[in-house]
Structures are given as structure tokens and as C-alpha cells.
């Protein structure tokens, strides 16, 4: 009996952690502060926040296959919110040469999150994140790199023949 309770407690902790509550509350705090100073911008923030949270809730705890374009949209929502935090310290470049394929939801978003944590967050002047994708010989390569710590995460997959 105890083993089952431990298991479900761990599972619960894991799921909560996956939601990134810290990030959610910090984003809400920023949006709250903006309500007075720039209400239109705050409204936009709430929209971005809702989109990001919806995507997370739809994806967490299961392997969901999504169009890469949709994953990119989620990354944009996520980066919008991170920009509230980092401002000019967070710069983003996209080099998308291929986008007609599917990925596991949040897989690439997590790379972007790690790039911010390992790079941007550690520098007072921030840095640039580069998200790129290309196709060669039936293989699709997706990369996320940052220029502070110089890390680069890459995913390679076979393009499915339709």
C-alpha cells in the first residue's frame, strides 16, 4: 500500500515540476505589474500565457505528436514570456529551412528552455538563441544553440515518406 502512495506522490511531484510552476508564477507576476503600466501589453501577455499553458497541459504526461510548425508557435509563446523576464538580454534567431514534419510536443521547447538556463540566464548581458532546421538526404536536423556557454542541442530524425 505504502509503495503505491509513494509512487503516486512521486508522479504528482514530477508532473508539477514539468509544469514549471516557478516560470508560471514569475510570468504572472510580470503581467500583473504590467496591468498598471501598460494594460494593452498585459492583455497580450495573458493571451500568450494562456496559449503556453494550454499547450503544456495538452502535452504533459503523454507522447503527443504535433506539426513542427505548432511546436514553433509554442516556442514563440514561451519566448514571449521569457522576454518579460530577460528583456534585451534574450535575443532569438530563426533559421527554419524545413518545417513539414512532426515532432513530439514540447521536445524542442525543452531544448530552448535548457539553452536559456545554461546560457542566457548566466550572463548579465544575455545572449542569442538560434533555432534552426534543415533537411538533407531524407534526414531532418533540428538544432537549438546559444552563444553564452556555447551549448548546442540537436535532434535528428528520418523524414517520413508520405
Amino acid at each position: 500500500m505504502k509503495e503505491e502512495n509513494d509512487k503516486s506522490a512521486n508522479l504528482r511531484e514530477e508532473m508539477i515540476s514539468e509544469l514549471r510552476p516557478h516560470f508560471l508564477f514569475n510570468s504572472l507576476a510580470c503581467i500583473s505589474a504590467l496591468c498598471r503600466k501598460d494594460p494593452a501589453f498585459a492583455r497580450e501577455g495573458i493571451g500568450e500565457f494562456a496559449s503556453h499553458l494550454r499547450y503544456e497541459l495538452d502535452s504533459l504526461g503523454r507522447e503527443r505528436s504535433v506539426a513542427f510548425k505548432d511546436e514553433l508557435k509554442e516556442i514563440e509563446h514561451y519566448l514571449w514570456l521569457e522576454k518579460l523576464n530577460y528583456g534585451d538580454r534574450l535575443r532569438v534567431e530563426y533559421d527554419i529551412k524545413a518545417d513539414c514534419f512532426e515532432v513530439t510536443a514540447l521536445s524542442i521547447q525543452r531544448y530552448v528552455e535548457a539553452a536559456i538556463k545554461q546560457g542566457i540566464a548566466k550572463s548579465p548581458t544575455g545572449g542569442t538563441i538560434r533555432i534552426s532546421s534543415c533537411e538533407k538526404n531524407g534526414e531532418i536536423t533540428i538544432s537549438v544553440e546559444e552563444d553564452v556557454a556555447g551549448t548546442k542541442a540537436t535532434a535528428v530524425m528520418l523524414k517520413e515518406r508520405k
Binding site: N26, A29, C30, S32, A33, L34, L84, N85, G87
Partner: peptide
């Protein structure tokens, strides 16, 4: 606070 919006607030 390292978020300037929140620091201001």
C-alpha cells in the same frame, strides 16, 4: 530581483 519589471513594482 533580476526581473526589472518586478523590481520596479
Amino acid at each position: 530581483d533580476d526581473e526589472s519589471i518586478l523590481l520596479n513594482e
